[in-house]
Amino acid sequence: MRITFTLNGEARTLETDGDQPLLWVLRDELDLKGTKFGCGRAACGACTVHVDGDAVRSCSFPARYLEGRVVTTLEGLGTPEAPHPVQQAWIEEIVPQCGYCQPGFIMATAALLAKNASPTDDDIDRNIVNVCRCGTYVRMRRAIHRAAELTRAAAPAPDPATSAPDEAAEAAHPDAPEADR
């Protein structure tokens, strides 16, 4: 089927099998290898991307639901020249070991901070449930707090206690279309 959506800020149209998971559309059809295959069952989080600002596990997201959606992958998050605060924090804290799960954690964290720039440890525990086998969790927690600092410094947000998280998400993705959910 023919699908038009926004990928990392650019309009894309492609012809693909609607049952094909977004993961493989990204990796094999669009050659964006930053989104990883870990389990194919939405259990590990290595394939996490953003769809309309929400963290989504792309291995369980059929391509047919892409129509009109706004997708961000790790490649669209930041660059070495202009890293996203989460990437900046990941570098400062030297988080990765093997590195394979890290894109998913970075994307999940970015989605969290877009809605809650002052996450508590409990917030982190609830929201970030990806799997890392190397055990980089200790540094990840530090990096998430550091990224939150950087996020707050970059855009002094209204008091999180009075700001609805959902508004923060919308602010981060002003072009998000009315999602069919």
């Binding site: 998971p21 939405a42 989504v56 917030d123």
Partner: peptide, 30 residues
């Protein structure tokens, strides 16, 4: 440790639709 959260749609970075879409997914089994 997934739980419904206040709005019943999951947490900020772990919405129900992080994994569950509008139909059953035959590949992932979600």
């Amino acid at each position: 440790g997934v739980a419904g959260s206040d709005d019943l749609h999951g947490y900020d970075a772990l919405r129900c639709n992080a994994c569950h879409q509008a139909s059953n997914d035959g590949w992932s089994g979600v």
